[in-house]
C-alpha cells in the first residue's frame, strides 16, 4: 500500500472535526453532535498507525479540553484509551466488513464516553447522565459517510505523493 507522505490533508481533517465540534448549534440538536474528532482520530490511527498514534490522541484531547473548558486531561485520557485499541488492532479492524467496523466504532466511542462519564463522576462535576449517548449513536450512524470521505482524502494524498 502506498503510504501518504503528506500530512497536511490529515491535519485539515482534524481541524475540520475540531471546528465542527465547537460550531454553534441550536440547543435542540446539540446533544446529537457526533464526536467527530474521536472518529477522525480512530480512522487515521487505524489507517496510518506509524504516523498517528497515542501522542496525536493526547494532543487532540488536550485541545478539546481547552476548547470545552473541561478538566485538562479528561479527553486526552479517553482518546488515548480509544487510540490504543485502534492502533493495537488496526490490522484486524481495517479488513472488517463495514458493519463490523461500524460496531467496533460504536464500542470505541462508547468507551470514550464512558471514560469521560467516570472522570466527571470522580471529579464531582455535574453528571451528564444519559445525555452523552445520543451523540455516540449519531457518530456511529455517521461513521460510513465519514469513512468514505476520509478514504477519499487518503487516496488523494497517496495519489499525489505517488508521483514522487
Amino acid at each position: 500500500m502506498a503510504r501518504p507522505t503528506r500530512t497536511w490533508p490529515v491535519l485539515v481533517t482534524f481541524l475540520a472535526a475540531i471546528a465542527i465540534e465547537i460550531m454553534p448549534l441550536p440547543d435542540a440538536v446539540q446533544a446529537f453532535r457526533p464526536p467527530l474528532p474521536a472518529m477522525v482520530l480512530i480512522y487515521w490511527t487505524m489507517m496510518w498507525p506509524e504516523r498517528f498514534g497515542l501522542f496525536t490522541a493526547f494532543a487532540l484531547g488536550i485541545v478539546l479540553d481547552i476548547l470545552h473548558g473541561q478538566l485538562l486531561g479528561q479527553n486526552a485520557l479517553a482518546l488515548c484509551a480509544v487510540t490504543y485499541i485502534s492502533v493495537r488492532f488496526h490490522l484486524q479492524i481495517r479488513i472488517f466488513p463495514l458493519w463490523q467496523m461500524t460496531m467496533t466504532v460504536l464500542a470505541l466511542l462508547t468507551l470514550a464516553a464512558a471514560l469521560l462519564f467516570v472522570v466527571e463522576g470522580i471529579a464531582g462535576y455535574g453528571l451528564s447522565g444519559l445525555n452523552r449517548w445520543p451523540a455516540v449513536l449519531c457518530g456511529t450512524l455517521l461513521w460510513q459517510p465519514v469513512m468514505a470521505l476520509l478514504d477519499r482524502v487518503r487516496m488523494q494524498s497517496e495519489m499525489r505523493t505517488s508521483n514522487f
Binding site: G53, L54, F55, A57, F58, G61, L71, L72, G73, Q74, A76, L77, C80, A81, Y84, V87, R88, V119, A123
Partner: peptide, 19 residues
C-alpha cells in the same frame, strides 16, 4: 504502544488532578 498508553494515562490523570 502499551508503555506509551500507560505513560500518557498517568500524565493525563496527573493533569486532571492538578487542574
Amino acid at each position: 504502544p502499551g508503555l506509551q498508553l500507560i505513560l500518557l494515562c498517568i500524565v493525563s490523570i496527573a493533569l486532571m488532578a492538578l487542574d
